[in-house]
Design a protein around this nucleic acid. Structure first.
Length: 873
DNA sequence: TATTCGCGGGG
DNA sequence: GTGTACGCGAATA
């Protein structure tokens, strides 16, 4: 089942399933006779609705409200005729103070939920004679008498099409505008092939290997015809959701071409803008944007196609500058050919990302687990899929779900907030042989163990066997009512265990699918806790979310106590669901044995299904602060062998605004500290780097800092190094100027001006024999990150630089400046702040009395150097 | 130190 | 379509 929608036929809704059969053929099934409905609770419901032509039926039914432990009660089930009129009926009731339930469920989901069918799953359909009142593209069209789910693991084969467009505008500095700039080329990639072709290039210019069109309008029409004929299930591309497709649609509008390339010609393809994103709707097909999936699934520095293709596929992208496109388009046949190859390459890369990295697998698994349609999984968040899932589960137990109230974002809740996990204050220093134990699926296990559920929460009344949580919330025990949440989670965790076990024996595609399934089960079960804490959730309850985190904190604190008091080991750190324990006088195997033994014994003492597991060993562990540490970690792989890894948490060794020297020095020093356990050696390594820097022995390349030009230089309000360099380059009439969106690299050279004005093009600096400002690199690039690391080892800045005894380096740094930089003359406009001579407090503006709070006088500070060396011009 | 602002991807 | 509604780093208060 790929997609579901409905159409009105003779003012009655007809539901449609767009799907595939096992052979890969397309099917469209029509279902009539299902009506929209919702629930209402309050005074005079019947009177208010009587005579309303939209209301088909009002009946009293017995249902349970989900929030708070309570018995079922009579509420009204209101059945309507037309799904589209639900809102007006609902709002009429809401205005009269009547509570509604499930009055905001999209009609297709109402039906899917009630029928027990879901996205990407198989449907058993009893068919009768086909009827196609609406022109639908499908190999077979059937009228459905009934539908039901069938369990069948394997997926139907899908057809994929990738696309990329090129446009040309007169103003090359800006992004093209769909209102005026035409599409000149469209590349398409097919999998499997279309009419024997793996790909096609459409263009409004003739050229080798290109399908030419006279006008843009003809090309757009060909595009529509090809999509309809090829009939793909999945449409991909790189950022097509927010660029190519909305752009094509706008051009079609301008050219009076009907955007009919969905599987129903009476429903046009649409792009609805919300916030700064478009949502694309192509009936019966799935838009799966490679860019969006990569962005969600990988943590990369940048997400440009060139960068993504290189890091995920190992494929280089032939570079065509965005500003070159116009020239190539108007240029020689060779230029045009280059543009065509470039265009095609982009759709090929997007397709390769999707197929070679199996981008859809995870989303298909989530779709099957949650019951949501694949398209909704791709663009929606966790909340949406949990809500669809809960609707089924709660309904089948006789509960109703509230309609989402659009309450104005409650501020006090934000302020009070929700207490999270417990984080131990890390024990200072470099620790060796630290065993890491953690709680397996902590929050889901707590929900299950303590029977936490909206349906078991005691809101009032008394129950002497209620389970009280640290936050004060009380839940009835399972013997009174087994909560829906605990049951869902038990089932999911159980299922995940089974899949993981089966997986070991499987291989190839099946194994991959199983892996995705267990991952989806993990993702889903971990998301329930966050759901209750989310303000906009239909069942939002800080009481429930707080009960879960409260029990988490209680559990980890009890565990720490057991380890320290019961076993005499020192717990050096812990966060939410993990504890790090220092094991002394043991080798790796010994420490592992102690860890496993403790985990097992403590698990036995913990209630319910809460389980503490041995995870790994940190051969060396250096905490900096809470949430920030580094470690040399070893873990048993699936083959039972130890696998080592350097772990960094909350510590970046690579950052865009750091030069290569910084990243490299950090990596080296971390390695020396963790692997060689030699702080002295790390300090001397650092000093060597500083010394080489002072001696001018570091290549400029390693000192290159890069920043992105985000707007026109004149629109920057502040003074920034990379922008100042742009201005200088413009004056020098540099040929290849970086444009908006390009990254520009610079080094900071010595001189009397403020820092931002001393940014230089490394090539220019080299030519003119300019020296880099070593002092800047030491103070602003090397010291800030490294000082933090060394201070965790008890080495302060003075010691690090060899102040005191050796008198070497710090002196050298100061002398260095003495020689090279004359006392800077500061322009008043460059003064960036003031520093107190006595207490060293700094501020942007001094108090009006002109002296610091402590009574000390102020020094000026500017970006060109330290305060005591300033003179104001 | 908190809060607001602006951009990402794409031509 | 019984609609929806980001997230993170830099700039600024």
């Amino acid at each position: 089942m790929l997609d579901v929608d409905y159409v009105l036929v003779n003012e009655k809704p007809v539901l449609r399933i767009f799907g595939k059969d096992a052979k890969g053929g397309t099917v469209c099934g029509f279902y009539e006779g299902f009506s929209p409905y919702f629930y209402a609770l309050g005074p005079n419901v019947e009177e208010r609705l009587s005579g309303n032509p939209q209301v088909a039926k009002i009946e009293k039914v017995s249902r349970c409200l989900p929030m708070g432990y309570q018995e079922p009660r009579e509420i009204y089930k209101v059945t309507l005729r037309n799904p589209a009129r639900t809102v007006e009926v609902r709002e009429g009731l809401v205005a009269a103070g009547i509570k509604t339930f499930e009055a905001d469920i999209p009609f297709k989901y109402r039906w899917m939920s009630d029928s027990g069918i879901g996205g990407m799953k198989w449907v058993k359909a009893s068919e009768s004679n086909a009827l196609d009142t609406i022109s639908v593209i499908a190999d077979s069209k059937v009228q459905l008498k009934s539908v039901s789910a069938i369990e069948r693991e394997e997926d139907a084969p899908l057809k994929y099409m990738s696309l990329d467009i090129e446009t040309v505008s007169d103003d090359e500095g800006k992004m093209p505008e769909a209102g005026k700039d035409p599409v000149v080329m469209i590349s398409l990639v097919f999998e499997p092939a279309y009419r024997g072709k793996k790909h096609m290039i459409l263009s409004t210019r003739r050229g080798e290997g290109v399908e030419p069109s006279e006008k843009e309008k003809d090309m757009l029409q060909s595009f529509v015809d090809i999509v309809k004929e090829y009939d793909p299930d999945v449409i991909t591309g790189f950022n097509i959701s927010n660029f190519d497709i909305p752009y094509i649609l706008e051009r079609m509008r301008k050219n009076s071409v009907r955007p009919q390339f969905g599987r129903c010609s009476s429903k046009y393809v649409r792009a609805d803008k919300f916030a700064n994103n478009y949502r694309i709707g192509i009936t019966g097909r799935i838009v799966a944007d490679s860019y969006q999936m990569v962005k969600r699934g990988w943590n990369l520095k940048r997400y440009g196609l060139d960068h993504v293709a290189k890091s995920l596929l190992g494929e280089e992208k032939a570079d065509v500058k965005k500003s070159e496109i116009g020239k190539l388009w108007k240029g020689s046949n060779e230029d045009f050919g280059r543009l065509a190859r470039y265009c095609l390459q982009d759709s090929i890369l997007a397709m390769n990302l999707l197929l070679k990295r199996d981008l859809l697998d995870k989303y298909i698994a989530l779709s099957k687990i949650s019951g949501s349609l694949l398209q909704d999984i791709l663009e929606g968040g966790e909340t949406q899929r949990i809500e669809h899932y809960l609707l089924r589960e709660f309904n089948s137990e006789g509960y109703v779900i509230p309609t989402k109230t659009d309450k104005k974002v409650v501020v006090e809740e934000n302020g009070a907030g929700l207490k999270g996990g417990f984080v131990l204050e890390p024990k200072k220093g470099l620790h060796s042989m630290v065993v890491v134990l953690d709680f397996k699926s902590m929050y889901p296990s707590l929900i299950t163990t303590y029977n936490i559920c909206p349906t078991t929460l005691l809101t009032d009344g008394y129950a002497d066997d209620a389970v009280e949580t640290p936050g004060g919330a009380r839940f009835v025990p399972k013997s009174v009512r087994h909560g829906i949440m605990p049951r869902i989670l038990e089932r999911m965790m159980d299922e995940r265990g089974k899949v993981k076990k089966q997986m070991r024996a499987a291989k190839g595609k099946t194994r991959k699918a199983m892996d995705m399934k267990q991952l989806a089960l993990k993702v889903m079960s971990n998301a329930f806790y966050g759901y209750f804490g989310y303000q906009r959730a239909k069942i939002h309850s800080l009481e429930i979310a707080g009960a879960i985190t409260g029990l988490g904190r209680q559990t980890i604190q009890q565990t720490v106590k057991m380890i320290e008091e019961g076993y005499g080991h020192e717990v050096v750190y812990g966060d939410t669901d993990s504890v790090m324990i220092k094991i002394t006088d043991s080798d790796l195997e010994g420490a592992e044995k102690i860890g496993r033994d403790m985990a097992e014994k403590i698990t036995k003492k913990l209630p319910g299904i809460i389980e503490l597991e041995f995870e790994k060993i940190y051969k060396r562990f250096l905490p900096l602060t809470k949430k920030r540490y580094m470690a040399w970690s070893v873990e048993r792989g699936s083959d039972g062998q130890w696998k080592e890894e350097m772990v960094m948490k909350g510590i970046e060794t690579v950052r865009r605004d750091w030069c290569e020297l910084t990243s490299e020095t950090m990596r080296q020093i971390i390695e020396i500290i963790l692997k060689q356990d030699d702080v002295k050696d790390a300090v001397s390594y650092f000093r060597d780097v500083v010394k080489s820097l002072l001696d001018g022995k570091i290549e400029m390349e390693k000192l290159l800092i890069t920043k992105t030009i985000t707007k026109k230089p004149e629109s920057y309000l502040g003074i920034q190094p990379h922008v100042e360099l742009m201005k200088k380059m413009k004056q020098r009439r540099v040929m290849e100027m970086p444009g908006i969106g390009d990254r520009i690299g610079y080094v900071i050279v010595r001189g009397p001006q403020m820092l931002s004005k001393r940014a230089e093009d490394p090539v220019y600096a080299m030519d003119k024999g300019l020296c880099v400002d070593s002092r800047y690199y030491i103070d602003n690039q090397l010291l800030p990150p490294l000082e933090r690391i060394f201070s965790a080892l008890g080495v302060n800045k003075d010691e690090l630089l060899g102040m005191g005894k050796q008198m070497g380096l710090a002196e050298a740094i100061n002398n260095h400046r003495e020689k090279d930089a004359p006392v800077p003359v500061v322009d008043a406009r460059d003064v960036s702040g003031f520093i107190c001579r006595t207490c060293h407090k700094s501020c942007r503006r001094p108090p009006l009395i002109g002296v610091c709070e402590c009574g000390g006088s102020f020094l000026f500070s500017s970006s060109s150097g330290p305060a005591e060396r300033m003179r104001l011009s």
